[in-house]
Design a protein around this nucleic acid. Sequence first.
DNA 1: AGAAGTAGTGCAATCGCTTGCCGGAAGGTT
DNA 2: AACCTTCCGGCAAGCGATTGCACTACTTCT
Lengths: 337, 337
Amino acid sequence: MTTIRDVAKAAGVAPSTVSRVLSGSSRISPATQERVRAAVAKLNYYPNAIARSLAGRATHTIGIVIARPAQQALANPFFPELMRGVGTCLQGRNYNLLLSMTGSPAEERTACMRMVHHRQVDGVILTSSRTHDRLIDELMAEEFPFVLVGRADDQLPVNWVNNDNAAVGAMAVEHLISRGHRRIGLIAGPPDLTVTIDRRRGFEETLARAGLPLTPKHQVNGAFTKEGGYRGMGQLLSQPEPPTAVFCTDDAMAVGALMALKERDLVRQVAVVGVNDDPLTALIDPSLTTVRIPVFELGNTAAQILVDQLRGVVQGPRQVILPSQLVVRESTNWTLA
Amino acid sequence: MTTIRDVAKAAGVAPSTVSRVLSGSSRISPATQERVRAAVAKLNYYPNAIARSLAGRATHTIGIVIARPAQQALANPFFPELMRGVGTCLQGRNYNLLLSMTGSPAEERTACMRMVHHRQVDGVILTSSRTHDRLIDELMAEEFPFVLVGRADDQLPVNWVNNDNAAVGAMAVEHLISRGHRRIGLIAGPPDLTVTIDRRRGFEETLARAGLPLTPKHQVNGAFTKEGGYRGMGQLLSQPEPPTAVFCTDDAMAVGALMALKERDLVRQVAVVGVNDDPLTALIDPSLTTVRIPVFELGNTAAQILVDQLRGVVQGPRQVILPSQLVVRESTNWTLA
DNA sequence: AGAAGTAGTGCAATCGCTTGCCGGAAGGTT
DNA sequence: AACCTTCCGGCAAGCGATTGCACTACTTCT
């Protein structure tokens, strides 16, 4: 291993001088800079990141913990896309990404605090969006930099990035209403997730605004899975007066819902809207109308906020809402007779 | 920040003793251990990972670089699933995962060598499977630990994990033959990837073994994308005597191929097999027959091999082949008249 | 001409932990 | 009783960088 000392020797200067040249900071004469750079090139020197971190009291690494139960893991490309966003931002800003994958949300806290306590990262990105989370309290208590993605908490003075989930629900319902539907059902995800809460809110407010009744029997909850959607649709269809259109708060559920319809030969009778724009939902039959969430941008922005804070560019907490977009396909693209 | 010195003071011992207790290594009397542990608990002490790395000359981190052009990124769940495998292994063995995402394979080398040169990781997992890769030469030259996944190079004494891609091609073709097909086409991925080469080999060998002719006109190459498959199928269908069955070396391509068939109303006329068992391929119409690659296991095994090597558990290079599995669905589940 | 700046470098402490080596105490051998 | 082992645990030297401070030449000012 060639160290900074070797370079210093080769260039006939002190290690501190090499360090200064490399960090581009202080006033070192052009001549000396030249000599140092030549030595660096000649010896093929790369500063040891670990040593640099220790001395500089900063790891230049941010952590992200992905809590995904194996089953849900595949169901949607949310995390890969999010990480692409995060990674893209970080790459350009010379930060590293330390990834921790855990099976359950329960382990998430442990995994995250491990990173934090061991000082492996300068900040973390949190993706699990439970309504209340002890993890957040702990991070706040330790004043450790972090940013929430996919969750908006107006009460807490913390960084977050989110899409407007209420608008997601609203867009979906407005679209269905415009297609002539009056009895609109809801298949929602786990009720304690803020995404669920927000999307349902948009759903309900829009119904109310349109003067349509809220029918509790037309609302069911399930897991963010195909099976959840399948069962949910089954429940809705067993009602005396079933909905003619259903808003599913997730694509996987919407796909399950469509399966239930197919089995009963009701495809063109009940409209379905999903959320996420999972790439393959365009390919199923019928292709799925869905609301596209800007996942890449979510990750990218989150990383940006965190890095800005670490660099001291910004002070207070930043909170960003990114717009979603309705994508109309076959599953709703017809008008109720 | 509480340091090892604080703990030492609180326990009335030297820092070295604390270190020894924590690393569980040397002979420290139970009484002292008890006192140290108590102090650790009381002060809520966590060793600084950076300092530990510097002193211990090991980062306990392995690197993985994901080179995915944005477009392909979404198309298949290969990487997330791979990383789940890697992550699961690493978590149990107390290793960290440093992730670098790059857009193009070209940047892959740079990104990887950056990690290596800066000594941020103890070893790396390589996923891009170009036939020849300068990156591999560089790593070998520096004697840096690494493992290849999704690629088998019998020439080089390096670690790798792969599924048997020749068997993948063979299974697909055998299945098609068993369904009565005689004119079997191939839509293959980029010709310089080893996966492409191996799968094609299995394809061709099986045809030969069955005494069926190799028809060059029935073989086309394309990108690992829906569009690639769509165009590929278009080309095959424009032949005078088109194939009655097509093996696509990737699910995304197979989906594209099915789209081309649908447009021409040829779904039940031409059988299609894909590779990967992308979860949503079960949901498209017709559902896709495919060969499931053990992606999770691939990642898991790769990580295992690397960690074992880093820990000095094993010596020479290890090379592992994991079995794939045919999943029959609607796209082939009929017999040629 | 002497005082006061200023620019360009080097010295050495420091970051928090690991580990080789050494020494004291306790117990075991002749 | 003198001598060896063995067991514990401390000392101090690193690991490879960063950075505050000091020091030496020059300029520049009065």
